[in-house]
Design a protein around this nucleic acid. Structure first.
Length: 150
DNA sequence: CAGTGTTCAGGAT
DNA sequence: ATCCTGAACACTG
């Protein structure tokens, strides 16, 4: 199945099968059509603290050179962050490879690459750094109050 | 080989 | 304090 729903200035396009999400990408808003994505994604983007990690595809976690990196990133709790360098040290790899793995991440949100930041600075995010800023701000807000506003 | 969503040390302003 | 470099990192196309 494939569908999309809006988030701030973008459309979030999701590709999934049963409970598992295989692909997510952000595109400039065009349609504005909503609702055609799995419920956890809708809730998450609406600012609800939900277990979106349950939708992760296990082939990403079990195969390929980035598997252990993705596995580590999935374990970062809601509202918290870890640096490229910290993750690299944990896994005995290099910070640049962590960055590369994040750039190639097929399922942002599910594998929360927005929670991986630079040691001093936010780091990168494609296609638009503002997406990362919005997501981090959102999680920070919810983490504190448990609600979307205030 | 060049390139990557980094990080660190060293040195100059 | 900030602003350059340059190099090492592990892996990919």
């Amino acid at each position: 199945m494939i569908g999309s729903c809006p988030f701030v200035y973008w459309d979030v396009e999701v590709e999934w099968e049963r409970e598992i999400i295989y692909y997510i990408r952000f595109k400039p808003r065009k349609t504005g059509a909503s609702g055609l994505v799995p419920l956890p994604v809708r809730l998450f983007l609406a600012g609800k603290r939900t277990d979106i990690q349950g939708c992760v595809s296990d082939v990403l976690l079990n195969s390929g050179a980035y598997a252990h990196i993705y596995e580590r990133v999935v374990s970062i709790p809601y509202g918290e962050t870890a640096s490229y360098g910290l993750i690299a040290r944990d896994l005995a790899t290099s910070p640049r490879l962590v960055g590369l793995a994040m750039k190639r991440n097929p399922t942002p949100l599910v594998i929360p690459c927005h929670r991986v930041v630079g040691k001093n600075g936010i780091g990168g995010f494609s296609p638009d750094i503002r997406i990362k800023e919005e997501l981090l701000a959102l999680e920070k807000r919810i983490k504190k109050t448990g609600r979307k506003d205030e």
